[in-house]
Amino acid sequence: MAGRRITSLTFTYLLLIVAFISFTFPFFLLIVNSFKRNGEILENPFSLPASLDFSHFGDVIEKMNFLVTFKNTFLITLLSVLFILLFSAMAAYYIVRNSTSFNRTFFAILVASMIIPFQSLMIPLIYIYGSKLNLIETVPTTLLIVLYIGFGSAFSVFIYHGFIKSIPLELEEASLIDGCTRRQTFFKIVYPMLSPTSSTIAILNVLWIWNDYLLPSLILTNEKNFTMPIKMKVFNGTYMNNWELLIPAILMTVLPILVAYLFGQRYIIKGVMQGAIK
């Protein structure tokens, strides 16, 4: 019996190690090849670098205009997520606590909208806000953030809605009797209680917006507004197959999110789990 347990344990570890290698070797390749020159990369992509040559990172920072691109991505993600968290929680709270037929309909429309593929909206989006209203020319970043708030709201309201339903009414009633207004009750009593749900929603939205390509590539037409995925696309076009520049560029694009994951992995895994169960 004990012998069988040990073989099955060995087998489990063996499978997991195979999975581990297949899921992480691309990162290994990224890291070792970031320090190599083209000749060395072509000769053997799997070998460790002969010397630690950091010079390509400097090149990439300059050629990608990395600091500006990073700042753009960071600001767009931050503002969109903050507004999604605030507005979705407010809407979900009011929909749950004032279950009028108008609010129930609004909620049903929000939930139903989640099956609309982005591809069915992008052409009218560009036509209305580009060709007609010219907002893509005048206020691209603001437009993009408003669109993210809109696209993010359905899922976020849905998750908040599920959580707020489970909060007992007594606390809010007590605070209303004590003379708080409806808005004070929400911001002082309800919103702080939502923070576990808020972190789930924040994580899922950050991952989406930070990595999103198609929508920003249609809205941001001026190079000074580019986000990291768009910049990466342009960079790849310019330095096609020039791996000694492309590899460090890819590594630098994914590094911010990998570092964030290193510190927040517990919350991120928990957040994804929570988001999926609902």
């Binding site: 605030l86 929909i95 669109l147 709201s153 309201v157 929400f186």
Partner: peptide, 9 residues
């Protein structure tokens, strides 16, 4: 409460 989400949506 619901206005901002409604407008963005």
């Amino acid at each position: 409460f619901t206005g901002p989400t409604m407008i963005a949506f």
